[in-house]
């Protein structure tokens, strides 16, 4: 079962969220000074931006809800299979970003590419093993060796 709607509803929802976020921004920026000696201070623009976000968020809700039903394009949340792939990939990349400091560049990137190919892509051939080794190694040669960028070293020195 998948939730199907149009951009009419979807935009109304995102407009609402943004309006609330605008209120949050406004409150946060009230902690900064709005004016200093007659001149706009650090809180001036953030406060205005918060208000503008509120106004545009509400405007988005209102304009969308005033369009007649059924005229907007279909809005589709990614299905379970698709979400598993895109969000799964994101989680893998985030994990790699968190681990690369302690595991080092080569090992982490090898693991990342291996996870992508073996788990997300389900390609369990020799070519995947080669890719998982070759991609990080080539990038490492290019950046660390040729261009002398200091990449995170990790426990094994590289």
């Amino acid at each position: 079962m998948r939730w199907v709607a149009t951009f009419r509803e979807a935009d109304a929802v995102s407009g609402g969220i943004l309006a609330v976020f605008g209120v949050f921004v406004l409150f946060q920026s009230l902690q900064l000074r709005f004016y200093i000696e007659g001149v706009p201070g650090p809180g001036f623009f953030p406060a205005l931006l918060g208000i503008a976000l509120m106004v545009t968020g509400v405007a988005l809700v209102v304009t969308r809800l005033r369009t007649p039903r059924g005229t907007a394009e279909e809005f589709r949340l990614p299905g379970r299979h698709e979400a598993m792939r895109s969000l799964g990939l994101w989680v893998a990349v985030m994990a790699a970003a968190l681990l690369v400091g302690s595991l080092g560049f080569l090992l982490t990137m090898f693991l990342l590419v291996a996870v992508i190919l073996f788990v997300i892509e389900r390609r369990r051939g020799l070519s995947s093993v080669i890719t998982a080794i070759a991609v990080p190694l080539l990038v490492w040669l290019l950046f660390a060796e040729l261009l002398q960028v200091r990449l995170p070293a990790g426990p094994f020195g590289s």
Partner: peptide, 21 residues
């Protein structure tokens, strides 16, 4: 192509090892 790269990688690894020791 990839062979020479491999060779370069190995050489540089060896170099790094040598230097650190």
């Amino acid at each position: 192509m990839s062979d020479t790269r491999m060779a370069r990688a190995l050489t540089s690894c060896a170099l790094v090892a040598l230097l650190t020791s």
